[in-house]
Design a protein around this nucleic acid. Structure first.
Length: 492
RNA sequence: CGGGGUGUAGCGUAGCCCGGUUAUCGCGCCACGUUUGGGACGUGGAGGCCGCAGGUUCGAAUCCUGCCACCCCGACCA
């Protein structure tokens, strides 16, 4: 199921409902491709937010909030940025409805309530933020500004894909202002490292750090750092980006500062973001045919306890033990749940928690009560063992840690076996067709060649890896000289 | 926006070509009872403007026209 999340509805629909439902289109509704994130899915997002927020603050950032609406005149100020997003903007043109004289009971847009200037619903916030920063920055003493915003943004894509490309999505966007180019470059690179750290160590998804080619670069950026992950179906997913914006936005919004020498200089900028797309990455990296598989770090419930009983007496005794265990676990910071519902049989509960990806399950029945044991089962491998009650306080935290590392190891192994070095274009096409995954190949460095390869194979340059070694070679398509390999793949 | 496909109960579906009693089946839901170490079983029950709007016809889920939505493939993209 994890292999085909976005292409085969029947594969993911059974647990997709646990996380999210695509908004039902009301009659006449133009809302398309938006998602409803249900509590369980949102709890996962909150865990991500909490950890990222911690990491941002550790690196000196603060949270703030800026308006949803961007006046068109601000939006168009940075030319490349505006051009890049123009095709996918939702625009507010009116501010009032009125009763429709022709259709009783219906409303229409009041033609007299046209806005003097249209408002763009933010597809990203550089414009509104830099127009604000202008008023905040006069001197080098006002720098750096290190701000992050948690927000929703709207991108009116022609085609949406659940989790990976919804019309509205939640994200964080960092926007920083610096006195020097070096400092801004350091910041952009640092935040890309923060993302890599988070995605690898918290979400157990291996990534490749790199920079984008010119044509894949963020609109308005001078350099785009990125982390690229590989999904189980062999397609690449951009999991996060961090942009060095140069002085483009400072120039567009006329943001200058007085330096120590008394001269005026334009400010250097970065922006960086990750979104609810990461939930999609999580699903497509770890899930299997039984449903979601959550790394313990992200699981809203890390341990679930299921009682198995016939009589009330048995139930009471098991409940007592379960509550004792819960206290033990909670003291160790483990989130746990005791499912004492008498409306479902144990088997149904097992299936449900597998669907939800709960990492560890403990079952307690009459036999266990007799022997002072429990059945301990792990979601990732389905292994079960009988463990004495006294050993659990040690064993469960260990098991959670082991699941976390083993999920990462499994994904890393898959990823590494799906990076293929090729020398010829024939090999290139062959790998794309039969093996999928990343292709490490030489490229002559021109946008034309990149475009040609895209047309011929649908594969794009995912990134130029930061750790790529210098290696003389020949471009797979043109045969022209190349100084190092880049990574190609079909991408979401 | 181009090409293909699909809309029938909360979910998944049969019926549509070839129009004709009360629209099929499974899951789920509700009630009662028996059950409970891997998705229980029995009995009874509720739930449908057959995507929307027109048209053809004595009669439309079924035929025709228009519209809307969704899915897949392109273009576009976090």
């Amino acid at each position: 199921m994890g292999k085909n999340l976005t292409s085969r509805k029947e594969d993911y629909s059974k647990w997709y409902n646990e996380l999210v439902v695509k908004a039902d289109m009301a009659e006449n509704s133009a809302v398309r491709g938006c998602m409803v994130i249900k509590p369980y899915g949102y709890a996962i997002w909150e865990k991500m937010q909490a950890e990222l927020d911690r990491m941002f603050k550790e690196t000196g950032h603060q949270n703030a909030y800026f308006p949803l609406f961007v006046p068109k005149s601000l939006f168009e100020a940075e030319e490349k940025n505006a051009e890049g997003f123009a095709k996918e903007c939702a625009i507010v043109t009116h501010y009032r409805l009125q009763n429709d004289p022709d259709k009783p009971g219906k409303l229409r847009v009041d033609p007299n309530a046209k806005l003097e200037e249209e408002l763009v619903v933010r597809p990203t916030s550089e414009a509104i933020i830099w127009s604000t920063y202008k008023g905040w920055i006069q001197s080098y003493r006002d720098l750096p500004i290190l701000i992050n915003q948690w927000a929703n943004v709207v991108r009116w894509e022609m085609r949406t894909r659940l989790f990976l490309r919804t019309a509205e999505f939640l994200w964080q966007e960092g926007h920083t202002a610096h006195a020097t180019k070096e400092e801004a470059l350091f910041e952009a690179n640092q935040m890309n490292n923060v993302y890599a750290d988070f995605v690898e160590n918290f979400m157990a998804i291996p990534v490749i750090k790199g920079v984008k080619s010119e044509s894949e670069r963020f609109a308005g950026a001078e350099e785009t750092y990125c982390i690229e992950a590989l999904m189980q179906d062999g397609k690449a997913l951009q999991a996060g980006t961090s942009h060095f914006l140069g002085q483009n936005f400072a120039k567009a919004f006329d943001v200058k500062f007085a330096n120590k020498e008394g001269g005026l200089e334009y400010v250097w900028a970065t922006s960086w973001g990750v979104s609810t797309r990461l939930i999609g990455a999580l699903i497509m990296t770890h899930s299997d045919d039984n449903g979601l598989v959550l790394p313990p770090n992200l699981a809203p419930i890390q341990v679930v306890i299921v009682p198995i009983y016939k009589s009330d007496e048995e139930f009471d005794a098991i409940s007592q033990r379960a509550n004792d265990l819960m206290k033990t676990f909670r003291d160790k910071g483990i989130s746990c749940k005791y499912d004492d519902r008498d409306t479902l049989r144990p088997g149904a509960k097992f299936a449900q928690y597998e669907l939800q990806g709960v990492p560890v399950r403990i079952a307690i029945g009459p036999k266990d009560m007799e022997n002072n044991t429990v059945e301990l089962a792990r979601r990732d491998t389905f292994q079960k063992e009988t463990v004495s009650v006294g050993a659990l306080a040690e064993k469960v935290p260990q098991l959670l840690a082991e699941i976390q590392t083993s999920l990462y190891a499994r994904a890393l192994d898959f990823r590494n076996t799906h990076i293929t070095k090729v020398e010829t274009f024939e090999e290139f096409q062959n790998v794309l067709e039969n093996k999928t995954g990343f292709i490490s190949a030489h490229w002559d460095g021109t946008p034309e060649t990149e475009q040609k390869i895209k047309e011929l194979t649908k594969a794009t340059i995912r990134c130029i890896p930061l750790d790529a070694e210098n290696e003389a070679g020949k471009c797979v398509l043109t045969g022209k000289p190349s100084g190092r390999r880049v990574l190609f793949a079909k991408a979401y």
